[in-house]
Nucleic acid binder design. Structure first.
Lengths: 123, 123
DNA sequence: CGGTATCCTCATTGATACTG
DNA sequence: CAGTATCAATGAGGATACCG
């Protein structure tokens, strides 16, 4: 921890809070996974992404991507018009989320593996 | 990063994914702030918390706390019956979220301060 | 103090189908 | 390939009031 061990009181509602702000950016059902997919493999087309985030519908992926683009986390580039093709990549800002994502993964690994092995033993 | 620089493909939907799991735990509007409040000051009563997470209603705080308790992140203790009093604290598992929360805060600070100063100049 | 009970509204998701 | 349109379903979140 450097200089953020304590958040000012205004973080609790009256003003702008970096935690609330960040949560607002990525606290959507699919955002973390989409960002993570983009983090570890680089550029992808729409359907590549759809395959890797399996379970997501075109509509929701599209909306999520739009949202992430608005927020400056993802960048969309049209790479060809004739066979229409785009690519999605993280912006610099988006890549900056890597530590946060990784901490989330780490926590998930540490704290939910027992739950998942219990599940297995129930099965 | 230790051993989580790349998540297996099954993270994309078919199986259990630590990232999705973690996101599922804390991706609620008030969860990160509540956890953070509990992180930096220790035990709190219901109304202490309500004051610090200003803007939240009793109902939503109560629901959030129940949810966090179910998930083993928060622990509720009744400390006295006569003047009825409870305290909320993070469990060990909950405290383990500190790095993730801190990374979120860090990211928020780095990436949204420009946006907030722009806002000021608009105002 | 520490919550519940209601009721209501809006946002998010999902399934399905269709388009340039 | 890369989406959009539509519509239905769910559920999170909020306002207000009340209870042990």
């Amino acid at each position: 921890m450097t200089d953020d061990e304590k958040l000012p009181a205004w973080c609790s509602g009256e003003g702008w809070c970096p935690l609330t702000a960040t949560a607002g950016m990525i606290s959507k059902k699919w955002h973390p996974v989409i960002i993570h997919r983009l983090l570890d493999d680089g550029d992808k087309g729409f359907n590549d992404l759809k395959k890797e985030v399996s379970g997501i519908s075109s509509k929701v992926l599209s909306e999520s991507l739009d949202d992430l683009e608005d927020k400056g986390i993802v960048e969309r580039t049209v790479i060809s018009e004739k066979p229409f093709r785009v690519k999605y990549a993280l912006t610099e800002r988006g890549e900056g989320l890597e530590p946060a994502i990784n901490e989330m993964i780490k926590w998930g690994r540490e704290n939910m593996k027992e739950a998942s092995s219990e599940e297995e033993s129930i099965v």
